[in-house]
Write a protein that binds this DNA or RNA. Structure first.
Lengths: 100, 100
DNA sequence: CGTCAGTATAGATATAATGCAATATTGTGA
DNA sequence: TCACAATATTGCATTATATCTATACTGACG
């Protein structure tokens, strides 16, 4: 049974937020998003940045894309990824603010 | 093999952040933390607030506690929970900022 | 001590996430 | 068309999460 209260965050918003946040709760995905904060990056750039193998990077990018966090465009044999979920930038900023 | 780059968020910080964030990536836990933002709450208060059964609430509180997100103190038969991880407040604020 | 309210934990089971290796796909250019 | 570079997908084993239900623990009080 879902809630029936007056709450400051609605159930739907909260669910979406949980989905987005869950996506961020992974070191590699966080790392990738951190790179994407500064703009579009190709898979190989991200791979080098995060120092992970290609499959792992592609997999996590697929996860992020499936949840609507990032999107991609192809240019020749390269694929550029970018952040499309604006929450991400703010949450990353939060992490930095909290720890630096 | 971990990274050896100059990155804006260190691996250790990033791992801790991922742990905290992963904890938030769950509707009920988000809801509970939202309630705890305003101060200490007992399990039964949280239970009513989130409209969930007692076991579910206790379980999620245990998860949050195990990860160092909240802490608790007992007073008679009541147990009061509170947020101890300061990131949480900022991240919740983020969620609201993004959607309201 | 027995009981009750409040809270925690355990067990069972289902589902999802990870990590890795192998292989497939797509586009380019000789 | 072949071969190669860049990227994606799949299969599988492992581990972690989620969700219930039932039961146990703890403290107050008569």
């Amino acid at each position: 049974m879902p809630t029936s209260h007056d709450v400051s965050i609605g159930d739907d918003v909260l669910s979406r937020a949980a989905t987005v946040i869950k996506c961020l709760g992974h070191p590699l995905r966080l790392r990738l998003l951190e790179a994407l904060e500064q703009g579009e990056r190709t898979v190989s750039e991200l791979q080098e940045y995060a120092d992970m193998n290609q499959a792992a990077v592609s997999q996590q990018l697929a996860t992020l894309k499936a949840r609507g966090i990032v999107d991609s465009r192809r240019e020749g044999t390269f694929v550029y990824y970018r952040i499309v979920e604006p929450k991400v930038n703010q949450i990353l900023q939060c992490i930095r603010d909290c720890d630096v």
